Amino acid sequence: MALIEIVLLALIQGITEFLPISSSGHLLLPAVLLGWQQQTLAFDVAVHVGSLLAVVIYFRQDIVSMTRAWFGSVLKGQNTDDSRLAWWVVVATLPAVVAGFLGKAFIEHYARAGIVIAVTTIVFGLLLWYADVRARQNKDLVDLTWKSALFVGLMQVLALIPGTSRSGITMTAGLMAGLNRESAARFSFLLSIPTILGAGLLLTLDLLEAGDAVDWQAIFYGVALSFISAYLCISLFLAWISRIGMLPFVLYRLILGVVILFIVL
């Protein structure tokens, strides 16, 4: 991989992993417009590691509190807001784990076409706008229930379809469940931790089985740039989302979807 490819793809991964704008749609454009080859497995692992480090470090205090509370709930039966939130992350993760295991092969073969990415980018962008405009948004994370968490988890299954955007669909579901914008975003980011970790582990196993040579320069830049861009993205998004709403991201998705349609048709 050339240095410009490494830099651009790492930044795209770091930024689009947490914004509700579809990472697969953005990763499609360099390949189509510039003729770049698909990124290597090792580089894919690297940018996932960078994104994971960013969200873990940003939410480190929440993670420590939730982990302690979860063990207190399991071992001592002590239920707190933190322990319940930890359980809701587990509940919301399970549907994607099951669906990913059962449907991975189908998605890989049939759902990665440019037309699919374009349509899902547009359709789920409009759904995000509808949820942002029509939902009550009167709940914080402490008000989340297991039913709402399960609903978010079931909606996250749709993110297996490229172009949907994992962060976009989980924020949409959170808004539909009544969470305010910041709470919906925070739950989406917390939910990304086991999701990215699982995806990274699967990619690592694929990498070990392939036995390909590793470009360590690409690994270093991939981890560093995806980490920096993802961390800044999370920080700025949480600081601004309550004021600016989801409309800018919806409009961006509509433009992106139309551009992809124009390219692939």
Score class of each variant (00 low, 15 high):
residue 127 L to S: 10
residue 130 Y to M: 14
residue 131 A to G: 06
residue 131 A to W: 01
residue 132 D to W: 10
residue 136 R to P: 06
residue 136 R to A: 13
residue 137 Q to R: 14
residue 137 Q to K: 15
residue 142 V to S: 14
residue 142 V to I: 12
residue 143 D to K: 14
residue 143 D to V: 11
residue 144 L to T: 09
residue 148 S to N: 15
residue 148 S to C: 00
residue 149 A to I: 05
residue 150 L to C: 09
residue 150 L to P: 04
residue 151 F to S: 12
residue 151 F to P: 01
residue 153 G to H: 08
residue 154 L to R: 12
residue 155 M to Q: 05
residue 160 L to E: 00
residue 163 G to Q: 07
residue 165 S to N: 05
residue 167 S to Y: 04
residue 167 S to F: 03
residue 168 G to Q: 07
residue 168 G to E: 05
residue 169 I to S: 05
residue 169 I to Q: 08
residue 173 A to F: 04
residue 177 A to W: 01
residue 179 L to Q: 11
residue 179 L to P: 10
residue 179 L to T: 11
residue 180 N to Q: 12
residue 180 N to M: 07
residue 181 R to S: 10
residue 181 R to H: 10
residue 182 E to L: 11
residue 183 S to W: 05
residue 184 A to C: 07
residue 184 A to S: 11
residue 186 R to T: 14
residue 190 L to D: 05
residue 192 S to A: 15
residue 193 I to H: 05
residue 193 I to Q: 03
residue 194 P to L: 07
residue 196 I to H: 08
residue 199 A to F: 02
residue 201 L to P: 03
residue 201 L to W: 06
residue 204 T to P: 00
residue 204 T to D: 00
residue 205 L to T: 12
residue 206 D to E: 15
residue 206 D to L: 00
residue 206 D to P: 01
residue 207 L to Y: 03
residue 208 L to W: 12
residue 209 E to S: 12
residue 213 A to Q: 12
residue 216 W to P: 09
residue 217 Q to I: 13
residue 218 A to T: 05
residue 220 F to Y: 08
residue 224 A to E: 00
residue 228 I to H: 00
residue 229 S to A: 15
residue 233 C to W: 02
residue 233 C to L: 08
residue 234 I to C: 09
residue 238 L to Y: 00
residue 238 L to Q: 01
residue 240 W to L: 10
residue 242 S to E: 13
residue 242 S to G: 13
